[in-house]
Design a protein around this nucleic acid. Structure first.
Lengths: 244, 244
DNA sequence: CGCAGAATTGAGACTGGTCAAAATTTGTGG
DNA sequence: CCACAAATTTTGACCAGTCTCAATTCTGCG
């Protein structure tokens, strides 16, 4: 399923930080040296190819993951195959926590991806002795929940056009957080992934992108790249303030 | 806006528990006596009428709340008035956490409701000295996120009929958790609230309930009460296994 | 170069939305 | 307890945005 071999040789590169920290945003950022040592002890490294599965919905929730590089999609399935992507994860994000004994979603790599893996049991032990860890985890959880609630508003109340604009702006903001350009965003996932994330079909995603292109709001140059030509207008549409 | 007067006279009634605990499920359940004492010190009590606002989206996030009795709806607004209810809260649940300085949603009572109120700053202080509190909060957050992801699947990929069946079953499960009957569930919220929760209109909610009634899956007796006549069939529809 | 998968485009169908009216329930004052 | 007004819910007719099915074009890769 995946290759659990140690991929990174040098562990100290990131200074007083966990290996998987990115721009000080990962859950392991700002830990004490002892706390980091504990995290390092239980950590495993993982590198997987695009479309490979990290874990599946319903499997025993044995590990929690932190994303070092790449992109991961988290999805849930309905009995007849309908799929909803409940989130994308980018460097610095984590995923795999579950209130039950089994994972609530499937996690798959969108592009070649490297991860830190923490056995759930041992992380739970660590969090007892290291309040800062728990503190960070809680903060990240609150942020995740907030983001999930935004997505509910999108799924329940926005039009296809508004959904796409919102999505492109989200990609731009996440790129900015990682220090990447904000006007030219990478769209590493397929139309099917975008559709399953926004509660649409691939045809509607394609048609809507074409329509945004014709309105000179975006440009679709090389595949997988979108240029945001008019971010102000994108924002207006995403907020439901404009129809054009 | 609301009456911040102390409503409950007796604080010790619940034994070694926080006052707002319900069936051992509240975030304050299972605390040490000292931890409870700390919580009690910063706690305020609140009783509000149906439709009254606890706080509004965008206001400074000064307090966190735990529900003692009643029902609260949490909603987000789009610029033009479109609304999405991102969750209902029942006794034992909490709400009001925000990653930002301001609330991400509006909280309103669905029925007369009593709440415990905790100043956010002081709860943050308490959580540093009381690991168990943080532990509980994190667990509840993980559960909330899990639940939010279920709701994304519902909003993005389910039909109106499936949404309604899922919703009725959710109410039934929550009633069961509180020790209430599971076949006859209270529907304390208006059709508009149900519609805004499920990403539908009031007309579609009404039509779909009528259709479920005609199929002898539910019965609508007294207003605000729904009898689940065929829970097995409800489940099959909610899982996308049946069309009837 | 040729093939397979992905993305786009087109035509028509359908679920759920909109607008409007009727029925029911709720609240209020006598 | 009743009468009446207001609000909510239900029902109906019609419409539109998105989906489905199908064909075509594009892209990547051996």
């Amino acid at each position: 399923m995946n290759a659990p071999d140690p991929f990174f040789k040098i562990l100290g590169d990131y200074g007083p930080s966990c290996h998987c920290d990115v721009a000080g945003e990962a859950f392991c950022a700002g830990m004490t040296p002892e706390g980091l040592k504990g995290l390092r002890t239980i950590r495993g490294n993982l590198r997987i190819d695009a479309q490979e599965t990290v874990f599946r919905e319903g499997e025993p929730a044995a590990n929690v993951f932190s994303l070092v590089s790449g992109t991961v999609k988290l999805s849930k399935l309905l009995g007849d195959g309908r799929r909803q992507i409940v989130g994308f994860r980018f460097p610095g994000d984590f995923f795999g926590f579950s209130p039950d004994a089994s994972y609530g979603y499937t996690a798959e790599a969108v592009v070649p991806t490297s991860l830190c893996r923490f056995p759930e049991v041992r992380l739970m032990q660590l969090r007892q002795t290291n309040p800062h860890l728990e503190h960070r985890l809680l903060d990240r959880m609150v942020a995740e929940l907030h983001y999930a609630q935004d997505q509910m508003l999108l799924l329940g109340r926005m039009t296809a056009r508004e959904k796409l604009c919102h999505f492109l702006l989200m990609l731009s903001q996440r790129a900015e957080m990682r220090g990447a350009p904000t006007q030219r965003v990478a769209l590493p996932m397929s139309r099917l992934d975008v559709a399953d994330y926004l509660g649409l079909t691939i045809e509607t995603v394609s048609r809507t992108l074409t329509s945004l292109k014709k309105a000179d709001i975006i440009a679709l140059g090389e595949p997988g790249i979108v240029d945001l030509l008019d971010i102000a207008r994108l924002k207006r549409i995403a907020e439901g303030q404009a129809t054009d």
